[in-house]
Design a protein around this nucleic acid. Structure first.
Lengths: 109, 109
DNA sequence: GGCCGGTACCTAGCGTTACGATGTACCGGT
DNA sequence: ACCGGTACATCGTAACGCTAGGTACCGGCC
């Protein structure tokens, strides 16, 4: 798949929120989850700033947990504001996706 | 609807390509078409740079047509490369949208 | 004639975001 | 001692959308 960079703007933060909604997670694991999902080009340089942003905005809390296989993890957990932000993200996404679907229909109709 | 700015990155260029695929159009009209579609915040300062970009990339040609109600219009028409770019856009969009759909499912499942 | 609203174009500057590159450091196995 | 995997951080760059401002053509109205 070609370069998705521009299309992923704003989307990745939503994806991270969604992943965190499924239970606490940390940067390295989130990168792997996004890669596994098909966003193969997403790397640490992209995800870590997002996590910092979420914490700064007060959408997630951090706890340190030690790892058996490396340095300690910074586990992020969504709070109520974070869940609200996730819902708001899906609303915006659904809106945009619905409009794009309309446009695409017109292509063939 | 809240601020869609970030979600529209990359998407607006695709929308303009799609609009142009339906026949030649010009900046002012495209702004109105996008507004009518629901992207109400999109203004001329957003669309004109996109059109310049399309021409620079060799995806569209320009012809001047006079208007009865104002200064002459710059009518943009897609060429073969433009139609290819449109198709490539839809492929990328479908990919991203499908992944997001998977993520959203997991929310409830 | 002068003014205003609608049409139509353009640009500079700003903020946000994703990404590549680079660096640090902990750990187990060989 | 070294290497690969785990795990974090940050700087600089590029791209894009948006606000704000500017120019200009036109018809109608006072």
């Amino acid at each position: 798949m070609e370069d998705l960079t521009e299309l992923l703007r704003g989307v990745l933060e939503g994806c991270v929120l969604q992943i965190l909604a499924g239970g606490g997670s940390y940067g390295y694991q989130i990168v792997q989850a996004l890669n596994a999902l098909g966003f193969e080009s997403v790397s640490e340089g992209t995800v870590y700033p997002i996590l910092v942003r979420l914490e700064t905005k007060g959408l997630a809390q951090v706890t340190r947990e030690r790892s058996e296989a490396g340095p300690p993890r910074k586990v992020y957990t969504l709070n109520a504001q974070g869940r609200a932000a996730l819902q708001a993200f899906w609303e915006r996404w659904d809106f945009v996706a619905s409009r794009l679907a309309i446009m695409k229909e017109e292509q063939h109709g």
